[in-house]
Every structure is written in C-alpha cells, then in structure tokens.
Design a protein around this nucleic acid. Structure first.
Length: 786
DNA sequence: CAGTGAGCGAGCTTCCGCTTGACTT
C-alpha cells in the first residue's frame, strides 16, 4: 500500500508521474474542478459579503468519492494541481472536500512532466496560497454575476428566442465579429494602377530569362497610367545601381494552444475544435505534452532531445539553441509549450492525427534551428524618358537553416509582399532588352473576415479567454445564433490592363473573381442586435480592455494587496443598478430599419428582427381596434446571406414575389419558393429542389412538371412497400432497406431486412416502437447533469 | 424547405475555467 496520495488534474499526467515517483506514491487525478457555484440564486450570498455557495458537480461525485476513500487509507495527501490561479483553487477545494487543513497539507508544483522536475518539486513542498485562491474566487464570482445578470436582461429585451446569453468573454467575441463585418460593409474600394516592366537578360548559363521590375508609386487613374506608358515609348533602359543586402529569417516559438490552432487552420484547414480533439488524442497516447497551454517554454530534456535530433538529421550547423519568452501578458504558464515527447517518433495514429503531430514535430525542431540566411538584390533601372527609376528585386536563399523543416503559414491580413526569386546577373551601366510594360488596375481590400483561428488570435491578444476555453467559446457564439461559419461566393469584377509593347499602348478589360471566402465567421442579425443592445447599456463590460482591467485587480488580490469581496462589491453595486435600470427603461431591441416605401401601395417597408428571425415587412402592424379594419401587413423572411443591416428596398421587394403559385398540376397546386436548402417546388405535400438553371422568380409550370414526374418515378422505384393509411413507407437505401415515417428513418433489424416486402404493418410498428424506446442518445458537448 | 409576426404569461433558458468520457452514423 502506497503511503502518500498525490492528486493531479489530468489522468494522463497521473500515469506518467506515478512511474516517476515509484511505489511510495499513489497518483490520482481529480479531472479539473470538482466543485462549482450552485445555480440557484447565482450561488452567491450577495448580502453576506458575496459568500460563495459551492456544490460538488454532478459529474464529479464519483471521482470525489474515490479520492475520499483513498485519502482515508493514505498517510497523507499531496496536492499537485497546476501552478496557476485555477489550479490553486482546485487544491483548496480538494482540502475542503477531503477534510484537509490547507495550512499544513503539502502542495507541490512543476511545469513539466520530467523526472528532475518532479523530484525537485517533491523535495520542495509548500502550502496552499489563499491569496491566489481568493483571486480565483473573485474571477469565478464576477463571471457568474456578469453572465447570470446580463442573460436574463436579454431574455426580456430581445424579441427573439429564449436561450440567449451574454458573458465577459462571449459577448466581446461577438463584438469583434460584428465590428469587422461593419468595417467591411463601410469599406470604400479604391483602385489604382501598378506598373510592371519585363526585361530579358542572360542568366549564368547564357540562357535568356525574363525578369520583372516594378514601376514608381501606384498611379491613381487610367489617364495617368496611360500617360506614363505613352511617355515610355522608345525609351532606353539601363541598370543604374545594384545593391546586395544580407538578410535573415528566424523561426517562430514552439506551439501554444492558440498558435497551434492558428497553424492547423492555415496549413491543414482544421477547425479549432478538431485540432483540440486530435491534440487530446495525441496527449492521451503519450505523443505530445499537454495541449492547453500558454507557455512557449521547452524543458531541458526537450532541448537536449531536439538538439540530438537536429544534429543527427541535418548536422551541427543547423542547430541553434533558443529560449523564447511569452509575449502575452495574460499567460499563466502552468505547463510547457506543446511539443513531442519523443523527437524520434514520426507518426502517431490515423492520417489526420499524424498530420497534426508532424506540424508539432516540425515546429518544435525549427524552434531550435539556425536562422535562414538570405541575400536580397535591389537593382535600380533608369528610364531615359522619365525621372523615376524602376526597381527590380530578387531574393536568394544562401542558407536554409530552419526553413529546411518548417515555414510558418500566413494570414491573409499580412498582405501580399512576395519578392521575386532569382535575378539574372546584372552590371551597372548595362543596357537592358525591353520586352513590355504593363499597368494593371488593382483594388484596395478591406480587412478579411475572421476565421475561428484568427478570432482566437485576437482574443488572446486582448487577454480574453484561456487555452481551455477558446474552442468552447467559438462553439457557444455559434450555438446561440450570434455568429455563423460559412462560405461566401465571389463576385466578378472587371479591371483594366494597359500594355506597352512594340512602341504601342493597348488597353484591354479583363475580369477576376473576388471576395470569395471559405469557412469565415459572419455575424447574424441576432448577433448584431444583441451586440448593439449590450454596447449601449453595458459599455463597461463590453470594453475590449475590461478583462485586462479586472485581471490587474485579480493580480492585486493574488499579491495580498486587495480584499477580494471588496473588489467584487465595487464592481457589483454600479453594475447591478445598471441592470435594474436597463430592465425598467430600455425598450425591446428589434434592429428596425426603414428601407423606403412600396412603389405599388405606398406603404412603408421595414426590415427588422421578428420573433422567427430577420424579416421585411410592408405596412405597419396595427393593434387593438384598428387591427380589425386595417389591412394586415405582409411579411417575408430574409434569405440566408441577407441582413437587415444591408438589405435594399429592391431586394426586399423581390422577396415578396415568393412564394409563387404556378398553377394546378394533376389536381394539386404547384408552389415555388426559396427555402433553407435553396429554391424548391412544393406539390401534393412533397418538396422538389429546383434545378440550378431554374429561377424561382420566373420559372413556369411547364418546366417544373417534368421535374415532379421524374422525381416521383425515382421515388416509386425505391419504394418496397407503402402503408398508405399510416403514412409509412419501406424504402431501398444505400445501406439496405429502411422504414420512413414522416421525416424520421428507422433501421430494420438484420433478420427482417432480408425480406423487407414481407413485413406487415404490425411488424413495422414494433420496429418503430422499439427504436423509440431506445432512442439514440446524442451527447451534447459540455452539457452535464439531467 | 409551411406560416408564424400583437400581447398575455407559465416555465424555461444563462456565465467562465478546469478536466474527460460515451454517444451514434
């Protein structure tokens, strides 16, 4: 029997540490927080100094019971939760629950799971730091107050749905998305002309190659561009000056949670939650260190291992030991950076997991490798008819260094500044062989919409959220319907190109597809209306630096310079008064916007958020007695990519043209409309998707009728048996026969699936009953309890 | 993939951070 019980947060860590410590210690995990504020009355006794009321979380009952029984049998208990605010609080909660005295119970900390680190920790135990615990309690209580007081305000003041929420982190995340969207809407596109000249020259092997030189500053309009090219007709081009400058590139720091999510998104196209899921697997299988971290630090053992791997694979000159410092002020650095546990392992699990592992491996290697050495050549070219010179730039890699294994991906925001590759050898005074010059119209671009990963980057910069909450926060704002992840189709745009060749300037109009985006975050109308409401009434909490400000106060509490419930009191009194005042005075938020008047009836047309989502409306809703006499207003739902903020009167009027009744086919009306999945026709209770070339606004019955017949035929072929009265059908599916009742499908048990036509209605009912009795449970993420 | 859209009001919803399962197709 082990003498000491040592408790850590993560079970995967427990296993490793037990091996290191040997049989004197039994190492168990508590799986994170074991207690939380109860939900009734916010779990805070506000009148009594904000005394928190904790309960053991339902999903931790079992864990706590087990820890209690082992603790009883052990000589003593050691607390080895993470060394940060949350970890300290977990240790204190463990003391409370296991009946330990925080003043005497041994508390140890380490930042890496290596033998020397753990042994050193065991030799230097301390006790629970109550100041730090109080800082955590203040954090927890403030978040509960903000979340549980603001959300109910939304329930009362929003016209839509009832699972709305607001919080210190999520509401600011939504604000970031909303403001970027409005920047894009407001953005004024400017165009200008960029001049490029093409020359040919001999390369080192006396072969002719073409190289490019850039013209002077951008020219603002087509006349200017034309004038510039005209002036160059017949000009002589000579090399005036050549400069060669050395340069270097350095590797990035090893991965933190946030940078891993960004790179996996840019290079592998993984969503933030996919990255975390795969990283969790890698961690549990012992391939990488802990994946929720804000530290860029590598342990001594990791430095040694990567040095050995670099030297053996690439040689001594590729190695350069580096120590990185965290830029983020909010970092708590309880763990190491994310790195492989074994630098010699190359694969780990299935293809997707291995790709993520390789990314981590390469990034870790590169972080300990030498700089890449560059040589940049800048040649100035004189134009005999112009005062300004052209510039040709070339870049050559002299030593690849860390680029041998890894180069970091780039966000679109970083812009396009590609340098040409190699320039042919040039000498000062050399006359150049001119081929052509062209002035191309280019357009300014607004900032791109956020991806999940670039939103995480922004949140981290603002110090909002923690590594363990980035992925859940992004899920929450989508689940609440504030933000949508979707693609945007590009639009065709024309641009002009002027070309000077053979002493003649010619102009052509070319076209490009622009503005196409994939998997970007768009605010919904609900998101924008909620955001505006919160910004108007709760300015302080919605400030980008609100978190930073309160974090500074939590630090004061942690240093023992401030009393935690005094800090909460200072926040709560004005905040709560603001909540009460808003409930009393603010009107319901609808985001209403007048678009103009209906040209036919002369009635006003408005766009607003209705009870069932964004809509446009002709005419004003009348209430009371007037309602009986006045003509009712007409309503139309907005399409998926329309917004009440940007929809025009013309677009709104289009919406009222649908649904269209095309006439009668086989005794039933055919109605076309645009639904959630695109344009469709409805006939005799069935839905038929329209073909791409069919426009729901103009399509005629003659075109739609064959579609219905064709689909119906295909359907009949897949039908095995139909029970008309019960509206149940047995159908042929790709995985075998199945039963369809309304929208729901039921699998047919194996034995019966062989002769589906033999099934009676009684058999079918039994199958459905049984399927309903054992419903396939869907596990809602993060939901616990009933 | 419908239409619904005002207001009444029972009974519901909600936060952030720390950890993993246990579910199907």
């Amino acid at each position: 029997m082990a003498k000491h019980l040592l408790i850590v947060e993560s079970p995967a860590k427990a296993k490793t540490i037990e091996k290191i410590l040997g049989s004197d210690f039994e190492v168990k995990s508590c799986y994170g927080h074991i207690r939380d504020l109860e939900k009734e009355d916010m779990g805070i006794d506000i009148k009594n100094g904000y005394k928190p009321k904790y309960i053991i979380s339902e999903d931790k009952q079992k864990v706590v019971k087990e820890l209690k029984s082992i603790a009883k049998k052990s000589d003593d208990v050691w607390l080895a939760t993470d060394e940060d605010r949350e970890g300290e609080a977990i240790s204190w909660h463990l003391c409370e629950v296991l009946g330990l005295d925080p003043k005497t119970t041994k508390r140890i900390v380490f930042h890496e799971i290596t033998k020397p680190a753990i042994q050193k920790a065991v030799e230097n135990p301390r006790f629970v730091n109550m100041d730090l615990v109080n800082a955590q309690q203040a954090r927890r209580i403030l978040d509960r107050i903000v979340g549980f007081e603001l959300s109910p305000v939304l329930w009362r003041k929003m016209s839509m749905r009832n699972n709305l929420s607001a919080g210190r982190v999520q509401s600011v995340a939504v604000r970031i998305i909303v403001e970027r969207e409005r920047d894009i809407t407001r953005f004024k596109v400017n165009s200008s002309f960029k001049v490029e000249a093409f020359f040919s020259a001999d390369d080192i092997n006396k072969k002719k190659v073409t190289f490019k030189a850039d013209g002077p500053d951008k020219i603002s309009d087509v006349n200017g561009a034309n004038g510039y090219l005209e002036k160059c007709i017949g000009a002589k081009y000579t090399v005036k000056d050549i400069q060669v400058k050395p340069g270097k590139k350095s590797p990035s720091a090893p991965f933190t949670t946030s940078t891993l999510q960004q790179e996996a998104s840019r290079k592998l196209g993984y969503s933030v939650s996919k990255t975390m899921l795969l990283a969790q697997k890698l961690y549990e299988n012992g391939h990488i260190t802990y994946m929720r971290t804000d530290s860029v630090n590598l342990s001594e053992t990791a430095l040694d291992a990567s040095r050995a791997a670099i030297i053996s694979q690439y040689g001594e000159k590729y190695h350069q030991q580096r120590v990185y410092k965290t830029k983020s002020e909010s970092a708590q650095e309880a763990h190491e950076a994310i790195r492989p546990t074994d630098m010699n392992a190359t694969t780990a699990g299935d293809a997707d997991t291995t790709r993520l592992y390789e990314l981590i491996w390469k990034r870790t290697m590169a972080s300990q490798m030498a700089d890449a050495q560059l040589e940049r050549t800048i040649a100035k070219i004189n134009v005999s008819t112009q005062p300004d010179m052209l510039t040709a730039t070339g870049e050559v890699l002299r030593f690849d260094g860390f680029l041998k294994v890894y180069s970091e991906g780039r966000d679109e925001e970083d812009g396009e500044d590609e340098n040409g590759g190699l320039l042919p050898p040039l000498t000062v005074g050399q006359a150049l062989d001119f081929q052509r010059m062209q002035a191309t119209e280019r357009f300014t671009r607004p900032q791109p919409r956020y991806t999940e990963a670039s939103l995480v980057k922004k949140l981290e910069e603002l110090g909002i959220g923690r590594p363990s909450t980035y992925a859940p926060t992004i899920s929450t704002i989508q689940a609440r319907g504030y933000v949508e992840k979707r693609d945007k189709e590009g639009v065709k745009r024309n641009f002009q190109v002027l070309t000077l060749k053979d002493d003649k300037v010619t102009a052509v109009t070319d076209s490009e597809n622009f503005g196409a985006e994939k998997s970007k975050l768009f605010p919904t109308d609900l998101g924008m209306v909620v955001n505006d409401f919160l910004r108007e009434h709760f300015t302080k909490v919605m400030d980008y630096d609100f978190t930073a400000k309160i974090e500074a106060e939590f630090d004061h509490i942690a240093e023992g310079r401030q009393v935690w419930n005094k800090m909460i009191d200072d926040f709560y009194l004005p905040f709560h008064e603001n909540v009460e005042h808003t409930i009393e005075t603010a009107s319901r938020a609808k985001g209403e916007r007048e678009l103009g008047v209906d040209p036919v009836s002369g009635k006003p047309v408005v766009a607003r958020l209705g009870r069932f989502g964004p809509m446009v409306q002709i005419g004003v809703s009348a209430t009371g007695e007037a309602a009986a006499t006045e003509e009712k207003p007409r309503f139309a739902k907005l399409r998926t990519n329309q917004s009440i903020e940007t929809i025009t009167l013309e677009e709104a009027m289009e919406l009222f043209k649908l649904p269209r009744n095309l006439g009668v086919f086989e005794g039933e009306d055919v109605v076309v409309n645009i639904g959630r999945f695109g344009p469709y026709a409805q006939h005799a209770g069935q839905f038929y998707s329209l073909k791409k070339e069919m426009d729901p606004y103009t399509v005629e019955l003659i075109e739609v009728a064959p579609l219905i017949e064709e689909k119906r035929k295909a359907k009949a072929e897949s039908e095995i048996k139909v029970f008309e009265k019960e509206k149940i059908r047995i159908l042929k599916g790709p995985y075998g026969p199945y039963i369809k009742q309304g929208l729901r499908n039921y699998k047919i048990p194996k034995e019966q699936a062989e002769t589906p036509a033999a099934l009676t209605i009684e058999d079918v009912k039994v199958i459905i009953e049984e399927a309903k009795a054992n419903p396939p449970k869907k596990a809602p993420r993060g939901k616990k309890g009933k």
